[in-house]
Design a protein around this nucleic acid. Structure first.
Lengths: 128, 128
DNA sequence: GGTTGCATTAGAGCGCGCTCTAAGCTGTAA
DNA sequence: TTACAGCTTAGAGCGCGCTCTAATGCAACC
């Protein structure tokens, strides 16, 4: 029916280690992963999409606790769509603010780099 | 001569806790902080600028180890200006890449938010 | 003299997100 | 038959960046 994936294949597709995939499952962010005859995890295509989404959340520095909360809402079905949207919007603006801060700080670093360049040129000139 | 600051004033000016200020000094990122008659730290204006710069580095997610390395170079004087610039440039491009990644992921989150909005409207329409 | 308040130190403790270990099971190949 | 590869689990361990604790000291005020 479905073509199911081993943990190694899942690892390759998501960039998460097998250890981390088991850990995510253990903390409750991955429910209903099926097993084959040998008791090995057998991930569906839907599992892949979900884990890839988790990876995005993680890359946005959303804490595991929050991701777990989001997963729980998702498990409860469509009635939680509004709350899920609010969570995403909250993180969206947090990350936007963080990006502004990074931009500001990058500017200050750029200034410092320019200042250093000036110093390096002076030293060169001095040597001559 | 100089007007020197207590650790509390330094804390207020930099946003770092007194604990953290002592920690930064202990790991070697703040050398030559003077003391008053009672043995209390007495920070100079130059110390303030330096700590504020450390805060910027920290906000750019530069590890303490790297910041310590940078501090050591700075202590060695102007001969290390070139190496310091290279460090800053390396982090600059790392952060730029990270910001691009954040932007991409924010886009995906925005899509999801739109998708949820659609679902919420459908539910409303369905109820009517 | 006693209390309050603010500082000092060395070192312990903590929350986070993994990351790894040990012991065990199953199927395949030599 | 034996070795190996790949998976399973519970739980220990780790690196990071703080954050806090306990014991102590000193100056000012009641």
């Amino acid at each position: 029916m479905e073509n199911l994936l081993t943990i190694q294949e899942m690892s390759r597709l998501t960039g998460l280690s097998a250890h981390t995939l088991r850990y995510y499952e253990k903390v409750g962010m991955l429910e209903g992963v099926s097993r084959n005859e040998q008791g090995y995890r057998a991930y569906s295509e839907a599992d892949v999409s979900w884990v890839q989404f988790l990876v995005i959340l993680r890359e946005l520095d959303i804490p595991i606790r929050e991701m777990k909360r989001y997963s729980d809402l998702r498990s409860q079905g469509p009635s939680t769509v509004h709350e899920r949207r609010l969570m995403l919007e909250a993180h969206q603006s947090r990350v936007q603010q963080q990006m502004r801060k990074l931009g500001d700080n990058l500017g200050k670093i750029a200034d410092k780099i320019q200042y250093y360049k000036g110093m390096e040129e002076e030293v060169e000139a001095g040597i001559k």
